[in-house]
Amino acid sequence: MKAVTGMTESEKYESFMKRIEDGDKIEMDDWMPDEYRTVLIKLISMHGISEIMGALPEKEWVPKAPGLGRKLGIMAKVQDEMGHGQLLLRVTEDLMKPLGRNRADIMDDLFEERLKFHNVFHMRTHTWADAGLIGWLVDGAAIITQTNMLGASYGPYARALKRICAEEVFHAQHGESIIMALAEGCTEQREMLQDAIDRWWPSLLMFFGPESKDTTGSSKQDATIKYQIRTKTNEELRQSFLSKYVPRIHSLGLTIPDDTLRFDQETKIWEYRQPDWKKFKQIIGNEGPKSQDRLNLRRAAYKNNAWVREALEA
C-alpha cells in the first residue's frame, strides 16, 4: 500500500506517533517507522516461535497424562500452543512481507539460531508435576506479560493477544487442576509437586527478563514502551507475578526455594534472590539443558516433512 501521500518523513512519523497517542490502532498496510516494524517483528516472532517451541516440553507428557480426561486436557493445551504460534507467526509474516520474507525464513532463523525462544522452554521436564506447573505458573507468568500488551498499538497483535489470553485462562485452570490433585494427593504426589516448584522457580523469575539492559547487556523493553506496545517494565511484571502467585503457592502448603523472599510493606516491593542472569543469557543463547535437543527435534521434523510442502507447492 502507498505511504501517506504528500508528507515528509518526519511529518509521517509525527502523524504516526499522534495516532498511537490517540489510542488509534496501526494496521499492517499502514505507514509505520522502520524501527516500529523491526521492534514488532523481533517481539512477535520471538513470542510466536516460543509458543511453537513451548509445545514440545508439554507434548512430552501427552501420552503419559494419567487418565482419559488428563490426556484430553493436555492434548487440547498443546494444540492451543501451536494455535497461538500460528496466530502470532501470521502477524509476523504480514509485517515481514514487504521485506520479502515468509514463514520459511522464520523457521530458518530459528534453525540457524538467529531467532531465540523463551528461557522456560529450554528446560527439561522431569515429572507429571512439571506438566501441571507449566500450566499453572509458566502460563500464569505468560498471562501477566500478555495482558500487559492487550492494548498494544499494533492492531493485529492486540487482536491475537485477546484471543490468546482468553485461551490462557483455560491453560492456567488446566494447570491448577493438575496441581490441585497433586497438592491434595498422597505423599509421593506432594513431593513431586514441591520438587517441581524448587526446580522451576529460577526459570519463572527469569521469564520476565532482566530488570534493565545493564543486567544482561540487551533489553527491548524501552522501544516497546515508547511505541505503546506494552506499558509495564520487566520488573513491574515480575512484581505483579509475585504478588499474585506467592500467596497461592503458600496457601497449598508449598514452599518457595528462596529464604530471602519477602514483601516489604513500606515500599510495597517484593524482595527476592536474583536468578543467575549469566545463566539466563546462556539459556536463551540456546545453551540450556534441552535447547539443542528441542531445536534438533524441530529441525528434523521440518526437514523430514519437506517433501509434503514441496509436493503441494503447485
Partner: peptide
C-alpha cells in the same frame, strides 16, 4: 498425538 507439534504445517498441526 505423537505427531503433535511435528506436522508438516502449523495450521495442519492444529
Amino acid at each position: 498425538s505423537e505427531w503433535l507439534g511435528l506436522a508438516p504445517h502449523i495450521e495442519e498441526d492444529v
